[in-house]
Every structure is written in C-alpha cells, then in structure tokens.
Design a binder for these strands. Structure first.
Lengths: 143, 143
DNA sequence: CATGCACCTTCCCATCATGTCAAGGTCAAG
DNA sequence: CTTGACCTTGACATGATGGGAAGGTGCATG
C-alpha cells in the first residue's frame, strides 16, 4: 500500500503522513526498491488513531504521549485519563474565552443601529475602551 | 514618544508594533534623526484600538477593515455591524466545535477507570473509532 | 569625558498544523 | 514511447506572536 492509498484509507493526507514521519511521530515507513513508501494494516491503524486524536483537538505532543501509552501494554489507564483531563481543561478554557468575546460582541452589536448613520457603539468601544456602557447599567449618561 | 513607551501605553508589544507597520496595518511611524520611531496621541489611539480588537478575537484582516471604517467619518454603522456579526458567527462555530470535543472527551473520560489497569475506553475510541460498547444510549450518539 | 546600561534598529528563525507549488522520478496502460 | 497519475524531496506560506543576535543610540553617573 503506497502513501496515497494510506492517506485515503486513514483520512490523513499524504503530506501530513510524511510530516508525521519527519517529526518522528510515526516510525519511518518501509520503502519499495524505487523509493516509494509502503504501509501495512498496523501503520493504517496508527494513522487513523492520530486522525481521531486530532479530531478531538489533541496536539501533536499529546498524541505522541497517547501513542506511546497505546502501544504500552502495561500502561495505567490513569495516565490516559490524566492527559484527557488536562486537554478537557485546555479546551474548556478556550471555550470560556470565546464565550466572553461573543457575549461582549453581541452586547455591542445589539446596540448598534446598523443603518446608514456613522454612529456606532462597536467602534466607540474599540476606540475608547468603554462604549456608552452607562446605557444599560446605571443612570443614563448620554454621550 | 518612542516605541517602548508606546508599547507600554497601548498594551501592544514593540515587536508587534513594528510588525503591524511592516504589513501596512498602521502607517509608517515618524523617525528621530537617529532612526528611532516616534509616536503621538493619535498613534496611541490606533494601537489601543487594534489591541482591543484583538482582545475581541478579530483577525488582522478584519481589523484592517474596522480601522478603515473608524477613520471614515461617512461610514455606515451597518458595515461595522456586519463585520461584527460575521465575527460572532465564526467565534460561535469554533465554540460549537470545542463543545463537541469536550462533550465527547468527558463522556469517554467518565468511563475510564483511571487506575493502574491498562483497560481504557479513551484509547479504545481513538484506536477503533467507536468505544467498546454502546454502553449508554444518550442524546450523545457516536459523533 | 568615559563607561555602562537600557533602549533602539534590522534581520533571521521558531512556533503549530497544514497547504501549495515546483522539479523530477516511477508506474501502468494504451 | 507517450501520457497521465502518482511518488519523491524541498522550499515557502499561512497567522500572530515570540526569541535572539549584532550593532547603534541616549542618558546618567563616576
């Protein structure tokens, strides 16, 4: 099985397969006499493992650890669980950041006329750091 | 005001100020006789604008548009609102992706013993694409 | 004045995961 | 033998940022 077929079968592009080999995430593939890389079922399984891990947002470094654990028959599931837990925390932190941005933007956007006039609380906020924020909270201070 | 002071005052690193100048996001700064960049209040305002935009997750390309609108006194607020709306959609899409990853990982993690034994549904899932059993028929079918 | 330290300048390289492009070799079919 | 699809390596780009080297500048203090 050459790299193109392995790519199709595993869902990892040929480019990335070569890249993973170059950075040592996967072992060097076998070669035909003419230099083509060859892949077997075990390689395919590894590539699919990597792809599923990427789909779950794991970094290459984390996948390196997961692969090592996967291939270690005497692993402790606690190690895997810890890596997953740390990853969940990272993802959750990113989510919270995005959530905050979205809420701020929605707030600003909801107060923007969105018409032909230039007056715009979104730009106000970007320019001054505080839009007409008194509009919702406290006593009105029209700007 | 030199670049270091401008950086401190605006919250944009000197490194990034130079970068923004290089890519044409901001105009070329004035220079002293000896080549030091100089910045005035207007430049500071622009830098702070950029920083607040980055804090809200806008890309450089989007900030380029926002800056143009900001400096266009005849702008229509609808244009700003549209950019913000598109950005909200992008951020929301990312959030949904993260949410899905987190839910899958939490599901897998909750079924992992996390002890000394090697048996681990997380690795199972990464290896085979489906956790060993349809242990739970929840609203969270295989994604 | 001279020395030193903090700051400035430009330029190059690294990140992270992925893509694009180019120049050339290989294979199978017509 | 030619054609076209595939493979090889290598270089470069993305987006936003950081790090560092090598050398010039500004200012304060001895």
């Amino acid at each position: 099985m050459n790299i193109g077929e392995a790519a199709t079968a595993s869902g990892v592009t040929a480019k990335m397969i070569r890249h993973y080999e170059a950075i040592g995430l996967i072992p060097e593939a076998g070669r035909t006499g003419s230099g083509y890389r060859t892949y077997g079922p075990k390689d395919l399984a590894t590539l699919a493992f990597i792809r599923r891990s990427r789909d779950l947002g794991f970094s290459i470094a984390q996948i390196r650890d997961l692969l090592a654990l996967w291939q270690d028959r005497s692993r402790a599931s606690a190690d895997v669980k810890r890596i997953a837990g740390e990853h969940i925390e990272e993802l959750s932190a990113k989510m919270r950041q995005l959530q905050e941005m979205v809420m701020t933007l929605q707030h600003l956007s909801s107060h923007c006329h969105g018409d032909d006039r230039p007056d715009c609380p979104i730009l106000e906020r970007l320019a001054t750091g505080a839009s007409e924020e008194d509009c919702c909270d406290g006593p009105h201070a029209s700007a």
